[in-house]
Amino acid sequence: MDYQYLLELFCGGVVKGSLYALIALGYTMVYGIIQLINFAHGEIYMIGAFVAFIVAGILTFSGYSGLSVLLLAAIVSVLYVAAYGFTLEKIAYRPLRHAPRLSPLISAIGASIFLTNYVQLVQTPDFLPFPELIPEFEFMADISSLLSSADLVILVVTALTMIALTVLIKFTRIGKAMRATQQDMIMARLVGINVDRVISWTFIIGSILAAIAGVLIGSRSGQINAAIGFMAGIKAFTAAVLGGIGNIPGAVLGGLLLGIAETFGAGYISSAYEDVFAFALLVIVLTLRPAGLLGKATKQKV
């Protein structure tokens, strides 16, 4: 047994999984409140990566570099993506609030196709090289085979984001309103919660998390493309379902598990079948626990 290799795979899996978790949170929050699979969420993440790329491009060509550029790119990207998430919900989902259950799903698939092709048309369908903005930290030199500097940044940022999200949901007014809306939308409306605004906020927060993931994946993988949103979106949704959809800790757990399962499968069995392991894990878990790992098996009442 090669422990070094095992550890490498594990670290890679955790990094990958934390990115999945960031995207999965957006899915799970939206699903928890309006029971909609937001298929366009992967595209939101892709747009986040693109906006960051553009801002970083402008700044690096003007002679700046380093972590401050990344930070600025991330801030602009977060702002824009929040605006995109807000607009998306207004146009594609809000008019369908009372439509049959499948309609918003089709609308979401349509929005996803639209956004991918929009970026392909106005930018480029080719892969773009993302500038390297994270310097190699010196204190990381000893363990750089396990964890690169970019990985460390990803882990730290993800952890901070999740803490911030927990605080937001547990302790703020809007978080309280979100939890209330998730439990019972009609009742929440009765006690004076502006449900439409809560839903808008849910989309904005979910989009921000996706944008952060987009910026991070850009600086880790070094290249982006208009089609990256699709697979990432599906994987993240898988992660959300794995943990029990609508459940926030579940999304994080599901993301991490999925990332680890994928890297282990790719590392020990075959890298060509990387995606198969993710879905196989999903099928197995759902067969054994139909409501996901942390999901509560709700009794159906008649």
């Binding site: 594609a92 439509a99 991918t116 092709n117 929009y118």
Partner: peptide, 16 residues
């Protein structure tokens, strides 16, 4: 494909 996506959304809004 851009138009196709937009039509899917519009169709669902106006005739779900």
């Amino acid at each position: 494909m851009l138009v196709f996506g937009a039509v899917m959304v519009l169709m669902m809004i106006f005739r779900p």
